[in-house]
Design a protein around this nucleic acid. Structure first.
Length: 270
DNA sequence: ATCTATGCCTGGTGGC
DNA sequence: TGCCACCAGGCATAGA
């Protein structure tokens, strides 16, 4: 699943390829992805020029002056740039025809992704965006902030780190990595995590996300290249999908926490 | 407020 | 080989 590092990678690639391009038509092959008014989406966007691409956590923003497409890739959403005459592939649901004989195509096998068209000036008031927390490698993230958000919670630390309203952008893979690097068991309740451990979460989260962003994200399972971009952070994963602990050599446990497949080392994580 | 269950989806897998 | 139940999971929403 694309997490913050992968979304940043998509953002960079898109930015270099579509800024300055005008949308001349939009084809819906499956319009369930569009969560705002589907007709308005087309009517407003056709003939608009893409001015910027940005992201906040896992949300991607495609900006067109006064309007912005909020795009969330969820599990398997991907963007591709293709010559307009190329035959559509299965699961290419939304086709943006651009003014240079290319298409921006949104492909999403499981159709979990969403697009919402909003006025750019209202963007930060949209509930999906306004509720988001602080990005894991932001300078404004502090151990006190994390501690304050989790200290009274009976939820597991794994669930809390997946909560986008606390830290914005971590998904299943990076939460496992952050907890391993912080030496904290994913099943610990939020109210047992110390301030010192929050500092480790902050430091390791920042380090891991910066490194993963530099690597272009992680490419495993079906989360392969989007826009022809392939990340290589999977070479640095220490616990997620692993069977042996790189520190102690014991078996990595795979359990379910909060309904998610979770990898951890029972020996190294306390 | 907070928790649990459900729905959204398709492709891959394992059992028979 | 084919059929089928089940699972993967980010997030919203409804119900308890």
């Amino acid at each position: 699943m694309p997490e913050i590092a992968e979304v940043r990678t998509v953002k960079r690639a898109l930015k270099s390829k579509i800024v300055g391009r005008k949308i001349i038509d939009i084809i819906y092959r499956y319009d369930g992805i569009i969560k705002s008014d589907k007709e308005e989406f087309k009517n407003i966007l056709i003939n608009k020029t893409i001015t910027d691409v940005d992201n906040f956590g896992k949300w991607l923003f495609i900006k067109l002056d006064d309007y912005t497409i909020l795009s969330h890739l969820r599990m398997e959403g991907k963007y591709y740039i293709k010559p307009t005459e190329e035959v559509y592939e299965k699961h290419e649901h939304i086709i943006f025809k651009l003014d240079n004989n290319t298409d921006l195509r949104y492909k999403d096998t499981r159709k979990f992704g969403v697009m919402i068209l909003v006025k750019t000036k209202d963007m930060n008031n949209i509930k999906e965006i306004s509720k988001l927390g602080i990005e894991p490698d932001s300078d404004t993230l502090s151990k006190e902030y994390i501690y304050d958000k989790i200290k009274n919670s009976n939820k597991t630390i794994k669930e809390l780190l997946l909560d986008q309203t606390i830290i914005n952008g971590l998904g299943n893979i990076y939460v496992d990595e952050v907890l391993f690097a912080s030496r904290i068991k994913p099943t610990r309740k939020g109210n047992t995590i110390t301030l010192e451990e929050c500092e480790r979460i902050k430091q390791e989260g920042s380090r891991i996300i910066k490194k993963a962003t530099d690597c272009g994200g992680t490419t495993i399972r079906s989360y392969t290249s989007s826009l022809g971009v392939t990340g290589n952070y999977q070479d640095y994963l220490l616990v997620h999908t692993k069977s042996k602990c790189s520190l102690c050599g014991k078996s990595i446990n795979k359990i379910r926490v909060g309904g998610r497949g979770t990898y951890y080392c029972d020996n190294c994580q306390k």
